[in-house]
């Protein structure tokens, strides 16, 4: 685990420079918490660039600033349960596979945004991105919705699809509309989906992938087990 891939090094750099969206940065912090080598690289570049922060002109703090921070901390302490206990209750994906799948998700996002060779073919920017997790919280797929009735789906872990089954991608534009199919997939290759006219995707819109009979759900609604589901994060 000492040799990092070029992609992982590039992601570390982008993280330090502040070029990731909040969602991507949070995913990356999950990797850092589990991988010392990634954390060490991030720390090293951060320290090298610190003179840039130290070149800003200092500003006087308001007199009561320290007191305000203390009361904000005290107020927060009363509101929140012990974070260590909360973390212990959360289902944690196995550490070893976690880096791989999150990294794949991030690299996938980055490729979607045009990095790593994708820049040769300018691509539209997605309006929302959803990382679909299984019941254990392990990322399975990443959906990027471009808001023009096209989306891409990319699987970030091995999924066993029996020969007589298909994967189907769904979204829930609103409770009234109910789940709408974005497309049926044969296998787990990355795919571009084009679908009928839907409202523009919004924050926290649900996306999911289910396992359906070959050719797709016979009822037009999800019937099979959920492979992964996740909420959309708007992209800027």
């Amino acid at each position: 685990m000492t040799k990092l891939s070029d992609e992982m090094i590039a992601l570390s750099d982008e993280y330090v420079l502040g070029l990731m969206s909040q969602g991507e940065a949070e995913l990356f912090e999950e990797i850092m918490a589990r991988d010392e080598e990634v954390a060490r690289r991030v720390g090293a570049l951060r320290d090298r660039l610190l003179p840039l922060d130290l070149s800003a002109s200092p500003c006087d703090l308001p007199e009561d600033f320290t007191a305000r921070v203390h009361s904000a901390i005290a107020a927060q302490g009363q509101q929140e349960a012990d974070p260590a206990a909360m973390a212990a209750n959360m289902t944690r994906p196995p550490a070893r596979s976690f880096r791989r799948v999150i990294a794949a998700a991030l690299v996938g996002l980055a490729v979607g945004f045009g990095f790593g060779g994708g820049w040769l073919r300018p691509m539209p920017e997605p309006v929302v991105v959803a990382v679909l997790l299984d019941a254990q919280g392990v990322p399975q797929a990443v959906v990027e919705d471009f808001g023009n009735d096209t989306a891409t789906v990319r699987f970030v872990t091995d999924i066993d699809v029996p020969a007589d089954r298909s994967l189907q991608v769904w979204t829930l534009p609103s409770e009234d509309m109910g789940p709408v199919s974005l497309g049926v997939l044969e296998g787990t290759r990355a795919a571009r989906l084009a679908f009928g006219d839907l409202p523009d995707p919004g924050a926290e819109q649900l996306y999911e992938v289910t396992l359906e009979p070959q050719g797709g759900s016979p009822t037009g609604r999800p019937t099979g087990p959920i492979i992964g589901k996740g909420l959309a994060a708007p992209q800027l």
């Binding site: 850092m32 010392e36 954390a39 991030v42 720390g43 951060r46 320290d47 610190l50 922060d53």
Partner: peptide, 10 residues
């Protein structure tokens, strides 16, 4: 081991 406290705070 992953960088200075100062860098982390900034």
């Amino acid at each position: 081991q992953s960088g200075s406290a100062r860098g982390w705070i900034y």
